[in-house]
Amino acid sequence: MKTLFLLLGLTLTLQAQQPFDFHTLDKLDALTDHKTKITLDPDMLRLAARFIGVDNDKDAASLLSLVGNLKGVYVRTYEFDKDGQYSLTDIEPLRAYLKQQQWSRIVESQEGKNIDEVYIQPLPGDRFGGVAIVSAEPRELTIVYISGVMSMGDLEKLEGNMGIPDIDLKNAKKPAAPPAKDKKED
């Protein structure tokens, strides 16, 4: 019985550590020539940090503090020539992954044909282990996935210094067990 529990625990841990495979979104690549892909793993983020502040960047201290805690930054934007060229099922692998990893969907908004979703991975206290944004419009799809420990203050800064955000992060549902800390994405 003990062995069974150990195996189960190991399986769950391994699943929790499984990175999101951004290649599952590659089918979107074939649908348009107008796309932007940014993939910054920990090594690339460390490289980026070397030059923050060198050109007297504004908010250099905040940027350095943010980048120091991040494990990965991934952005995919696609622009299409006409409506209906992509389907929301194309991003189902990401939604399924976030659900499996117990991320909380804290915003789900639909305005006409525009759909916005914001997910966070809650951690104890006011911190979270990542933020994901899906913005789906008839001719534009944007996915942002940032992995790494952040605070509400960091999210406010990301959004722009607009005071207390309307997005209610404090009441996001926390999972029963803390998520795995070391996640390698993509």
Binding site: D55, D57, K58, D59, S62, L63, L158, G160, N161
Partner: peptide, 11 residues
């Protein structure tokens, strides 16, 4: 001239 505006989070 290093005129390029510095990229900050509030710009």
């Amino acid at each position: 001239r290093k005129l390029r505006p510095r990229i900050g989070l509030d710009d």
